[in-house]
Write a protein that binds this DNA or RNA. Structure first.
Length: 574
RNA sequence: UACCCCGUGGUGUAAUGGUAGCACAACAGUUUUUGGUACUGUUUGUCUAGGUUCGAGUCCUAGCGGGGUAACCA
């Protein structure tokens, strides 16, 4: 990670941390953790939390951040997710060193702490069924009522809890509950369940356990065991904080961590919850968890987004308690900003139109020097082959151009980037269909390299690829996943998936690339001049080159054109 | 109609009782061998009503609006 990246602007959490450091709380020690449950893939919302937790650790002398898998529910968790999470955190650029922990490592301590709670009369074994417990819990507006088992003798609780662990009971027969207050205004304080029986294989502990601790119990104690100083989580856990504090106070622990909540990231034109993302994958709305349209870290990685851009984005969105929705345009800006500075340029034609330079010899061909990145001289130059027959973009030619169209048209002169000025002398069309087959041009040999000795100006510059040298490729054009900013809030449809963008993927099968692109490795990123940023897909092969469009370049001509179309439509209706 | 949290331009965020600033977006322009980039400029904001204070986005009260919470999920 770069030096200038290492500090983020202050926010309310960093203020608290700074205050605690100054007050020598925890001896001035700062220790955070990123605690994913291994039951799904990480998305860009997790990146916010990762950047926050690892960022704060890095900004404070001696600060550490643990990677801790919160694996207390064996029925939903799998090693596949552990591996993908580790890969994603590492890709984002963060190093947890040897601090890779699992809540399941603490099962014995957690168990003993629960025994301690029972001995002190702070927990009891309850035989109520799931629905009875729900009924006893009361509602948001009414208090709950005590379990008939609430005053069970300590010795009996101890015996029962030991037999729960020993596997004497079926799932659901007993639970262990904290004894707090069934009339508490916070429902989470109404004798919450802290252990349940689950005869299930755990991805890490196998069949060693058949009782598993609940999040509210396991999390504060895991934090304390790791001597976490600041336990950062999202807003929906705010109401759990009194319970977090209750356990921190009631259990004898080496450290008293503080939970602080911040707003999760919401992004426009996408959905972020694991559940929705799973639906999209399962129902085939996207091809996989790493479909380049997905907001998963694996998806945006395959799309061509860089970890630098994502870190920069996370720094710029800030950290607050306001639950808003961030414009995806800011993410896109960060990606373009990074890619503009660092990705090499190349020329590629997506929708080829044949151009014949009639006064350029059929026998002749030459190499022309092209700048690899005008933003960075150190990236040097490359040679691009030029010959009599070329491809240009279909959009770059119009027989009857509107106002402000600066590209090729009959009689018009334009520049071919790094090559020559050419003037259109005519078009050849299919006599049957009238479709344009090719454009005929003359070139000016004096304009080699793309500038004229007489200083005459041309308004348009076109990218091009030499036909005989061109490499064929499939190009996948990705766009935003949804057509509206907040698909889940839209009440005009019954299912948010009706709002999926039907044009979020367009496949171009016959793109023509400059030859140097043929041996680009999977993951390699380029700017195709005048088009956008592209990267080599992981499915690419020597037989079929595949590129993904990361993002298009900003396009002010597209804006003018749509304004002109709008005006035309208005004129017609008027 | 219980409790908790949150309200600053279109969006995201600063201002820690003392000139409401930044970024993105939008719009206009300059430069340009990418209609990209860069640069310049413009538009738009403290939810409302009271109170405290020389002075309130900031503190207090009430209202209004938004979010969260009743898995043996995390």
């Amino acid at each position: 990670m770069k030096e200038n990246e290492s500090t983020a602007p202050a926010d309310f959490i960093r203020d608290i941390v700074a205050t605690d450091v100054a007050a020598k709380k925890h001896d001035g020690r700062i220790h955070t953790r990123f605690p994913p449950e291994p039951n799904g893939y990480l998305h860009i919302g997790h990146a916010k939390s990762i950047c926050l937790n690892f960022g704060i650790a890095a900004e404070n002398a001696g600060g550490c951040c643990n990677l801790r898998f919160d694996d207390t529910n064996p029925v939903t968790e799998e090693p596949e997710y552990v591996e993908s999470i580790k890969a994603d955190v590492a890709w984002l650029g963060f190093d947890w060193s040897d601090r890779e922990y699992y809540a399941s490592q603490y099962f014995e301590t957690l168990y003993e702490s629960a025994v301690g709670l029972i001995k002190r009369g702070k927990a009891f074994v309850c035989s109520l069924t799931e629905s009875q417990i729900r009924d006893h819990r009361g509602t948001l507006t009414e208090p709950g009522s005590n379990s008939p088992d609430r005053d069970r003798a300590v010795a009996e609780n101890l015996d029962l809890f030991g037999r729960m662990r020993a596997g004497e009971f079926e799932d659901g027969v007993y639970v262990l509950r904290a004894k707090i207050d069934m009339a508490h205004s916070n429902i989470h304080m109404r004798d919450p369940i802290i252990y349940r029986i689950r005869h299930a294989e755990h991805h890490f502990t196998g069949s060693a356990w058949c009782i598993y601790p609940m999040y509210d119990y396991a999390h504060p104690i895991s934090d304390a065991i790791e001597r976490i100083t600041h336990s950062l989580c999202t807003l929906e856990f705010e109401i759990h904080r009194p319970l977090y504090d209750w356990f921190v106070n009631e259990v004898d622990l080496p450290c008293r961590p503080r939970q602080i909540e911040f707003a999760r990231l919401n992004l426009s034109y996408t959905v972020m919850s694991k559940r929705r993302l799973l639906e999209l994958v399962r129902d085939g709305n996207v091809s996989s968890w790493d479909d380049p349209r997905m907001p998963t870290l694996s998806g945006i990685r395959r799309r061509g987004f860089t970890p630098e851009a994502i870190r920069n984005f996370c720094r710029r969105i800030g950290v607050t308690k306001y639950d808003g929705i961030t414009d995806i345009a800011l993410l896109e800006h960060c990606v373009r900003d990074d890619l503009n500075k660092h990705s090499p340029r190349a020329m590629a034609v997506l929708n080829p139109l044949r151009v014949v330079i009639e006064n350029y010899s059929e026998e002749h061909e030459e190499n022309l020097a092209a700048i690899n990145n005008p933003e960075d001289d150190s990236m040097g130059i490359r040679q691009v082959p030029f010959s009599r027959v070329l491809y240009i973009e279909q959009d770059d030619f119009m027989e009857d151009p509107p106002k402000k169209f600066f590209r090729l048209a009959p009689g018009r002169e334009v520049r071919l980037r790094y090559a020559y000025y050419i003037t259109c002398t005519g078009v050849d069309r299919d006599p049957a269909t009238g479709q344009i087959l090719q454009v005929r041009c003359n070139y000016d040999p004096a304009t080699k390299g793309g500038s004229s000795p007489d200083g005459r100006k041309v308004k348009g510059t076109l990218h091009w690829v030499s036909a005989v040298h061109a490499v064929d490729a499939q190009v996948r054009l990705y766009d935003r996943l949804f057509t509206v900013e907040d698909p889940l809030a839209d009440t005009s449809v019954s299912d948010y998936r009706e709002l999926l963008n039907p044009n979020s993927l367009e496949i171009v099968d016959a793109a023509k690339l400059e030859p140097g692109l043929a041996d680009a490795a999977p993951g390699a990123r380029f700017q195709f001049e005048r088009l956008g940023y592209f990267c080599v897909d992981r499915d690419t092969s020597p037989q079929q080159h595949i590129f993904n469009r990361t993002l298009p370049l900003r396009d002010s001509w597209a804006k003018i054109r749509s304004q002109q179309n709008g005006k035309q439509a208005n004129d017609k209706t008027a």
